[in-house]
């Protein structure tokens, strides 16, 4: 049997469509998701299939959109919010951070906010500083939010269906560079539990921890390094909140070396949390080299292609740094 291949965007659309067929309370709202089909083409034909009431086009009004989703979620709906670029969540931060994240706890536990906020994240498209950020650490820092970063079409569908089952607000950060990438995606509904890290490639020499597009980039690096006789183990931290250190500790106990790869700026990034948790955990004294963080530069994402590439870890950077850590130089 041949593998069923979908793009990342198609996998997300399939998950949304299946959830909407299964549960009449699921609906989607956002800017240009109707006839336009979504800025990155994710909603596609959902508008034709489910109509304008369930694929609800909104004005450009991020705070209002997220607030409306919070209110609808409070009274039994299951909204999927599409924020056109993750940078625009800044416009809606009150509703995300002060409302959605806190309502269940702060109001005593009777109410909850089961919404999924999807947003394209990351750089690499020449869209410059206000359309290219990786803001996952903002959300991971807020108790009450769950934060998910799918790294492949298979992951995207399974994590999104799990996010839609979850009775809490989930920030679902899709990477722009992955939308057109393809991979095997089963047609049936399946769920990848939130709060799990995923060992995507086994190797004995060095542990690489990555998320989003850095996962596939690290896998490419692993392929390339294999020819030089270096075996990298790659772990995808697909769920930042809740977060699973298990496979990371296990891997370091085996390899004794770890490199943390992140697109977002280094300062205050999520990999700082990972490094801290490694240092608090069982694998610290098995490290034979210092923890290496390979991260984005602490600058806004620039426009020019050569500038943009230079601020975010590229394939060559991952290979070079992996070799350094491996050789202990």
């Amino acid at each position: 049997m041949t593998e069923r291949i979908l793009t990342y965007a198609e996998a997300i659309r399939e998950a949304i469509g299946q959830a909407m067929e299964t549960d009449e309370n699921v609906f989607m709202l956002g800017e240009d998701i109707g006839i336009y089909g979504g800025a990155f083409g994710v909603s596609g034909d959902l508008y034709q299939r489910f109509g304008k009431d369930r694929i609800l086009d909104t004005p450009i009004s991020e705070l209002g959109i997220v607030g409306a989703a919070v209110g609808a979620a409070l009274v039994g709906m299951k909204p999927i919010v599409e924020i056109q670029f993750s940078d625009f969540t800044a416009q809606a931060m009150d509703q995300i951070v002060n409302q959605a994240a806190k309502i269940h706890f702060m109001l005593g536990g009777e109410l909850s906010v089961p919404l999924v906020l999807r947003a394209p994240s990351g750089s690499g498209t020449g869209a410059a500083a206000q359309h290219s950020q990786s803001l996952e650490a903002w959300f991971a820092h807020v108790p009450g939010l769950k934060v998910v970063m799918p790294s492949s079409p298979y992951e995207a569908k399974g994590l999104l269906l799990a996010a839609l089952d979850d009775p809490n607000p989930v920030i679902f950060l899709e990477h722009k560079l992955l939308y057109k990438t393809s991979g095997h995606v089963p047609e049936e509904q399946y769920r990848i539990p939130l709060g799990t890290s995923n060992l995507v490639r086994a190797g004995k020499d060095l542990t690489v921890v990555a998320s989003g597009v850095m996962v596939s980039r690290s896998l490419e690096a692993a392929d390339s390094l294999k020819d030089s006789g270096v075996e990298i183990e790659v772990i995808d931290i697909r769920s930042l909140s809740p977060f699973d250190m298990g496979p990371i500790n296990e891997s370091i106990l085996k390899t004794g070396k770890v490199m943390l790869v992140q697109e977002a700026p280094k300062h205050g990034g999520f990999m700082a949390e990972v490094a801290a948790q490694i240092s608090e955990g069982p694998a610290l004294f098995s490290l034979t080299e210092p923890i290496r963080r390979l991260c984005g530069m602490d600058v806004p994402i620039p426009y020019a292609p050569q500038l943009e590439k230079s601020v975010v870890p590229q394939l060559g950077d991952i290979i070079a740094n992996a070799l350094e850590v491996h050789r202990g130089s």
Binding site: G67, A69, G71, A72, P79, Q95, Q99
Partner: peptide, 17 residues
């Protein structure tokens, strides 16, 4: 003003249902 968009959303849900 935090509750105002939430009220609109709860009203949207009434309409949808």
């Amino acid at each position: 003003a935090g509750g105002i968009p939430i009220a609109a959303g709860a009203a949207l849900a009434q309409k949808m249902k």
